[in-house]
Amino acid sequence: MAAVEGRRRMNRREWMACGLAAAACTRRRPQAWRRKEPVFVLKAESYERELASEIRRAVQATGIAVRGKTVLLKPNLVEFSRATAINTHPVFVAAVMEALLSLGAADVRIGEGPGHRRDTWTLAEEAGYFAAISRFEDRFIDLNRDEVDRVGELGEWGPLWAPRSLLDADLIVSLPKLKTHHWAGATLSMKNLFGTVPGSLYGWPKNVLHHHGIDASIVKLAEIWAPKTVAIVDGIVGMEGNGPIQGKPRKAGVIVAGANLPAVDATCCRLMGIDPGRVNFLAMSQHLGPADAAWIEQRGERPETLRQDFELMPMWAHLRAPKG
């Protein structure tokens, strides 16, 4: 049963998708970066304090432009358990939405395509999204069941389709949870893009991404979306150990923001006591952005002062960054 190639002529959105991919390729800078990528680190002790103004400050500090743009927030909504902290906190999502609207975003919507649970709406309700986010029903798009357009190829797995809402958005904001991950080492703004792959075509779980190689798939999706994607990471309470689902909550008390996904993810790794240079998907995505601290302009708090060594599974012990 080989995958069947699409035979239609490309439409406007597909041309747009090709443009995105081409833009990503032209950004290839394997070694030498021309300028440092700014990443803002902010202390945030809890979800109860006023978050929107702080997030607004982070967005402004990293030069992320939102005025007049249609924005799609992509939280990390995976499964729900009262016992741990799996998902991007709904209060955090609401605060980002408020911050971006206050900065002049024309419209802010929220989209996610969970990889395990079929019933996205019920999952969102269980996870508290309806209660925390005003007009959530009107704002939310189930990316697993959106209209789709072809955006590229996934190696031997053939065409890669993506939700049209992502292609239509001017700006995507990846809102991951700060977590370790049992197959990738860490799951951050780039791994969060797995939720952009439509389950209606690829299933629950989106198994082709695993067969293609988790690291390779992370990079592939980042290549497609990075040109119009920024990241704001919920690191107030993260997850350590056997993430992304069965790990333990870890209060890290940080928010991380930036326009360059590898730079943001590398900073998050440093905050978790992980050496980003040892994380495969970061090593493979150097054409998209730097992991090397020398090419990241740290704004706000210094990551080394807020470092907390997240528990790593034995198979990932080699990722631990040396002290000092």
């Binding site: 069947v4 699409g6 035979r7 209606s200 075509l201």
Partner: peptide, 18 residues
């Protein structure tokens, strides 16, 4: 229905569907 016997998930995504 596709030539190989399967159905695609959508007319817009010509891939054999579960």
């Amino acid at each position: 229905q596709l030539a190989g016997g399967a159905w695609p998930a959508s007319p817009n995504a010509q891939r054999e569907s579960w």
